[in-house]
Design a protein around this nucleic acid. Sequence first.
DNA 1: CTATAATGTTTAGAGTTCAAAGTAATTGAC
DNA 2: GTCAATTACTTTGAACTCTAAACATTATAG
Lengths: 190, 190
Amino acid sequence: MNISYSIDQQQGKLQGKNHDPLLEDEKSMNRYDEVLVALRRIIRATDLHSKQLSKVSGLTSPQLLILQTLRHHGELTVGDVARRVSLSQATVTTIIDRLSKRGFVVRERGSTDKRKVFVHLTEQAIQALVDAPRPLQDSFVQQFQDLRDWEQSMILTSLERVAYMMDAQHIDASPVLDLGQLDRTDPGNH
Amino acid sequence: MNISYSIDQQQGKLQGKNHDPLLEDEKSMNRYDEVLVALRRIIRATDLHSKQLSKVSGLTSPQLLILQTLRHHGELTVGDVARRVSLSQATVTTIIDRLSKRGFVVRERGSTDKRKVFVHLTEQAIQALVDAPRPLQDSFVQQFQDLRDWEQSMILTSLERVAYMMDAQHIDASPVLDLGQLDRTDPGNH
DNA sequence: CTATAATGTTTAGAGTTCAAAGTAATTGAC
DNA sequence: GTCAATTACTTTGAACTCTAAACATTATAG
């Protein structure tokens, strides 16, 4: 889960008393590389965040994300959930496996269309959601919300720009490997 | 590896003929949520990118990243590599396991300090690096480099800002769980 | 000079993630 | 009405990622 396979630099942050020796290449970095480094750091932070979250609340980010989606929408099929959280169906299946093993959700085969599997929350999950989540999220949210308005929109615009460029990249490269891609109506989930 | 556990919206992109039904909540989103959605999309794109890369070149992003780091620096210990690519030592170990099984790198126990394990590339790896990487990277790089100068720096600034805020978040939340955190000189790797 | 601390790596265990292949069930075409 | 295509989900196999604990080696303190 890393893009930046063309560089090898460091966060250059808090490396301690003696100056970070890895920072030396930084001068030779072009802006593109720096973007990738920043993304790597973001992704890592995000990952650590999830891990920590699960230590505190017992739920990882994707688990919480799926629970919260279900809380909003009552009952959804596995596929619906996958589309809503933009994860593949396979991934959602495994996450739901774990959630259901721990009694947070229940699977129920559809009665009219028996291919469908509906998922809904248990009481326990609703309880857990009430008092569980927040803590870790706060710091980042807080900081973000403390930014001035124009800074917030600048960041948002930038992120959306990057996301868009990356999506495009994916679509560009895809046809070589998957000719069906272009006809599909829902490329969000494969 | 997902931050945005408080929202459940869709990319809202290319959803096909009839308007995406999931987009309806978009109106109610605040800017903070949108930031998280953008990040999720970026992370996912990055992930898919890596998977595709490995289909084309036989190497995943982190593998390539580590190989390239070794190419630059000749020979490094496992720990050095970990610090340079900002992954945990354990993660690097497993990636190196795979690389060495495929004959791309060789491990060598240090002679003076026998705790250390040096890793270096094989001829085969150098060969693979010459003709392997590029293709997929290009599209994103291309697009990024086509942006005007101020746009590039805006994006870079924003990403670094986010990365910084996320690091801070991590450091903030940590002491509750790990009191040793504050004394460490290298928080980059735990 | 031995016990303890510090350093460096690996192993174990848990989770996320995806594509591809497999299994049902439904729909459409003839 | 039956057979093929499509749709929905699960299973499987492979990577990646982390922390915590186990091992091994080296350095240090008493």
